[in-house]
Lab assay of single mutants.
Amino acid sequence: MWEAGIQHIELEKGSKGLGFSILDYQDPIDPASTVIIIRSLVPGGIAEKDGRLLPGDRLMFVNDVNLENSSLEEAVEALKGAPSGTVRIGVAKPLP
């Protein structure tokens, strides 16, 4: 389960991407759907250096692409398709 509020994070995407990987996970509230979760951070990558994204965070959007009900493929496309420079990411943090 995740917090209702969405944290807005801006990262600078370079030639090596944003520095994290994702996975799809069965939604605990709606078993028929999936949620997109941050799986891991690349050591020394943009996301790890920034410090705000953590494994277990739920990915909600990338720039103007809503990922609340997306497939893993759609989420990967949104991340890979984001141009270099500032990328806006929304995440919901896990409940304590």
Score class of each variant (00 low, 15 high):
Met1Trp: 03
Trp2Ile: 05
Glu3Lys: 13
Gly5Val: 09
Gly5Asp: 09
Ile6Cys: 09
Gln7Val: 11
Gln7Ala: 13
Gln7Ile: 15
His8Arg: 15
His8Ser: 13
Ile9Met: 09
Leu11Asp: 00
Leu11Met: 08
Glu12Ala: 08
Glu12Phe: 07
Gly14Trp: 04
Ser15Arg: 07
Ser15Cys: 10
Ser15Trp: 05
Leu18Gly: 00
Leu18Ser: 02
Phe20Lys: 00
Phe20Trp: 01
Ser21Glu: 07
Ile22Trp: 02
Ile22Gln: 01
Ile22Lys: 01
Ile22Ala: 04
Asp24Phe: 03
Asp24Glu: 06
Asp24Lys: 06
Tyr25Glu: 14
Tyr25Thr: 15
Tyr25His: 14
Gln26Gly: 10
Asp27Asn: 11
Asp27Gly: 10
Asp27Gln: 11
Ile29Ala: 14
Ile29Lys: 11
Asp30Tyr: 11
Asp30Met: 10
Asp30Ile: 10
Asp30Trp: 06
Pro31Glu: 13
Pro31Arg: 08
Ala32His: 12
Ala32Asn: 14
Ala32Gly: 10
Ser33Val: 14
Ser33Asp: 13
Ser33Phe: 07
Thr34Lys: 14
Thr34Trp: 07
Thr34Pro: 14
Thr34His: 07
Thr34Ala: 13
Thr34Met: 09
Val35Gln: 14
Val35Asn: 15
Val35Tyr: 14
Ile36Gly: 01
Ile37Arg: 14
Ile37Cys: 14
Ile37Lys: 15
Ile38His: 00
Ile38Gln: 01
Arg39Cys: 05
Ser40Leu: 04
Ser40Trp: 03
Val42Thr: 13
Pro43His: 09
Pro43Met: 08
Ala47Cys: 05
Glu48Phe: 05
Glu48Gly: 05
Lys49Ile: 08
Asp50Tyr: 02
Asp50Arg: 02
Gly51Asp: 03
Leu53Pro: 04
Leu53Asn: 00
Leu53Gly: 00
Leu53Ala: 10
Leu53Phe: 04
Gly56Trp: 05
Gly56Cys: 03
Gly56Val: 01
Asp57Glu: 04
Asp57Gln: 15
Arg58Asp: 00
Arg58Pro: 01
Arg58Lys: 11
Leu59Met: 04
Leu59Trp: 01
Met60Ser: 04
Phe61Leu: 12
Val62Pro: 00
Val62Phe: 04
Val62Cys: 04
Asn63Val: 01
Asp64Tyr: 05
Asp64Glu: 05
Val65Lys: 09
Asn66Pro: 07
Glu68Asn: 07
Asn69Phe: 12
Asn69Ser: 11
Ser70Val: 11
Ser70Tyr: 13
Ser70Thr: 14
Ser70Phe: 13
Ser71Val: 12
Leu72Phe: 14
Glu73Thr: 12
Glu73Asn: 08
Glu73Leu: 09
Glu73Lys: 10
Glu74Met: 15
Ala75Gly: 15
Ala75Tyr: 01
Val76Ile: 10
Val76Glu: 05
Val76Cys: 11
Glu77Pro: 03
Glu77Phe: 13
Ala78Met: 09
Ala78Pro: 00
Leu79Thr: 04
Leu79Pro: 00
Lys80Thr: 11
Gly81Asp: 06
Gly81Lys: 12
Gly81Cys: 12
Gly81Phe: 14
Ala82Lys: 04
Gly85Trp: 01
Gly85Thr: 04
Gly85Phe: 02
Gly85Cys: 04
Thr86Gln: 12
Arg88Thr: 12
Arg88Phe: 05
Arg88Met: 07
Ile89Phe: 15
Ile89Lys: 01
Ile89Gly: 01
Gly90Asn: 02
Gly90Phe: 00
Gly90Arg: 04
Gly90Met: 02
Gly90Thr: 06
Val91Asn: 01
Val91Leu: 10
Val91Glu: 00
Ala92Val: 13
Leu95Tyr: 11
Leu95Glu: 15
Pro96Arg: 09
Pro96Thr: 05
Pro96Tyr: 05
